[in-house]
Structures are given as structure tokens and as C-alpha cells.
């Protein structure tokens, strides 16, 4: 076996690829959260719908999204493969184990937590990503003042023969811009009215928090980065930012739409 393919099939090579794809997914989460916070603008989805067109058409973003799909699949299936191999390494189990005496709960349950997140992803992508690409979406027209950028009016234009993701017309005479978008905002609004979906999202965000609380710092160790100089900083970012703040940030969306949002 060549040393290159040998690396990827070795125990260390495998965990390094899981670590690298995991860190890439962490960066994605930050961008995804930042973009989705536009749901909270009181503009009937104008900013979010415009952003969605950008995110699904920009060539660079498109390229990164393919890297993302690959990373998700690699991280999930390599992770499950490792978990399966690890179970096989102990064919006879202990009658008594005391894991909490020597390790944190999240670190011992990454396979379980990851599986919850994988199920969540399947539902999440079906509800929003697939729906946006192939579903019958409502269309909304926004009239925007050219000078101030203020939204002067919105109109539901569903069923008027639009098929593009969105377009902008400039009305020089009235100093207005007419934006017509596939209305992703309404899809999100409707999705988060379903209690089971909201519950799944909240449970999954808790799982994500625990997964990242171990996973973020663990990926640095797998990459060989372990030094008292920066271990504390890595642990802090993994626990506070990725373990707590980011999952809470995502969880605010279903909570807001289910409990506080009125259409």
C-alpha cells in the first residue's frame, strides 16, 4: 500500500479527516447562524429572501457548498465507521464500567449525538433546502424606495407564473426598486408552526451543543495541537462559543416563530 492511501486507512489518518471536516463544519455553523439571524429583521423576509438567492446562485458559494456536502457525508459516515470499529475492538464487554469517573459524558457518546444531528439534518434539508430547490414556494413582491432603501409595500404574488429564484427591476420614474423573490421566509414561518418540528430542532440543538463541546477541542488534539499555551483557549471556545452560544443562537429561531411570532 502506498504511504498516502496507507495514511487515510490508518487509525490516525481516519481521525484526522474526521477532525478536519468537523472543524470545517464548525466554520460553516458560524456563517449559517450569522446569515439566518436575518430572520429576525422586521421586513417580512426581504433580507432573508435576498440572501437566499445570493447563497444559492453565487459560484464561489456554490463551490463551497459542494465541499460542505462532502464534509457532512465524510464526517458522518467516517465517524459511524470508526464507532463501529471501536465497538468491535472490545468483543466482550465489561459487566461494570464507571465512565464518569474518567471522562465527560459527551466524549463517550459522540456517535449517538452525531446520529441525532444526522437525523436532524435529513429533516432540516428536506424541509428547507429541498423545498427551496424543488418545492412549490410562495412568491412575494417588495417595493423598495431607491433613495432610502425603505420597504414601501409587499404583495403576495404566488401563482402568477414566476419560476426564477428572484429578480430586481428598477423603476427610475418612481424612484423605486421592485424585488420579486421565492419566499423562503414564509416556508420557515410555516415550518416552525409545527410543534414536532420545533421539538426536533430543540433536541437537536442540545445534541449539537454536547457534540461540539467535546468535538471542537478534540479535533485540535487529533491534529496534534496540544500545548498548555493554547489548550485553555481552545477549550473555552469549544465550550462557550460552540457548546453553548451557537446552539442557543439556532434554537432562538424555532422558539421565536413558535411562541412569539404573529403573522
Amino acid at each position: 500500500m502506498s504511504r498516502f492511501s496507507g495514511f487515510f486507512s490508518s487509525s490516525i489518518g481516519k481521525k484526522m479527516t474526521v477532525a478536519l471536516t468537523g472543524l470545517f463544519l464548525c466554520i460553516f455553523l458560524v456563517v449559517h447562524l450569522w446569515g439566518n439571524l436575518q430572520l429576525f429583521y422586521a421586513d417580512e423576509g426581504f433580507a432573508l429572501n435576498k440572501y437566499t438567492v445570493f447563497m444559492t446562485t453565487n459560484p464561489l458559494i456554490k463551490f463551497i457548498s459542494y465541499v460542505l456536502y462532502f464534509s457532512i457525508l465524510w464526517h458522518a459516515f467516517k465517524g459511524l465507521h470508526l464507532a463501529w470499529q471501536n465497538r468491535r475492538a472490545r468483543p466482550v464487554r465489561y459487566a461494570v464500567t464507571n465512565g464518569k469517573a474518567n471522562s465527560i459524558w459527551a466524549s463517550r457518546n459522540m456517535g449517538l449525538l452525531g446520529t441525532v444531528i444526522l437525523v436532524f439534518l435529513a429533516v432540516h434539508l428536506t424541509n428547507f433546502w429541498a423545498e427551496y430547490h424543488w418545492g412549490e414556494l410562495p412568491y412575494t413582491k417588495y417595493v423598495v424606495d431607491l433613495g432610502t432603501g425603505e420597504i414601501l409595500g409587499t404583495e403576495d404574488v404566488t401563482g402568477q407564473g414566476y419560476s426564477e429564484k428572484g429578480f430586481v427591476l428598477t423603476d427610475i420614474e418612481n424612484e423605486q426598486e421592485i424585488h420579486v423573490y421565492k419566499d423562503m421566509y414564509k416556508v420557515v414561518e410555516a415550518g416552525f408552526q409545527q410543534p414536532l418540528i420545533v421539538l426536533l430542532y430543540l433536541v437537536s440543538m442540545i445534541a449539537l451543543g454536547f457534540h461540539l463541546r467535546h468535538g471542537f477541542q478534540s479535533s485540535f488534539q487529533s491534529m496534534g495541537l496540544n500545548h498548555p499555551k493554547y489548550n485553555g483557549a481552545i477549550r473555552w471556545v469549544g465550550t462557550v462559543i460552540f457548546g453553548i452560544l451557537i446552539p442557543i443562537g439556532f434554537a432562538t429561531m424555532p422558539i421565536y416563530f413558535y411562541f412569539f411570532h404573529t403573522t
Binding site: S10, G99, N102, R108
Partner: peptide
Amino acid sequence: LAMVAQMDKEGFGNCTNTYACEAE
């Protein structure tokens, strides 16, 4: 290269950084 290859060949599991080893 040789020690990792032998370790894998013996059938030991993969490290997932639970750090139980260090604690025990």
C-alpha cells in the same frame, strides 16, 4: 509509521479523545 501500523494490525480501537486513559 511502523508502530502505528502494528497497533492498527493488532486490532486496537481508534482514539476519540475521551482522555479516560490519562485519568486511569
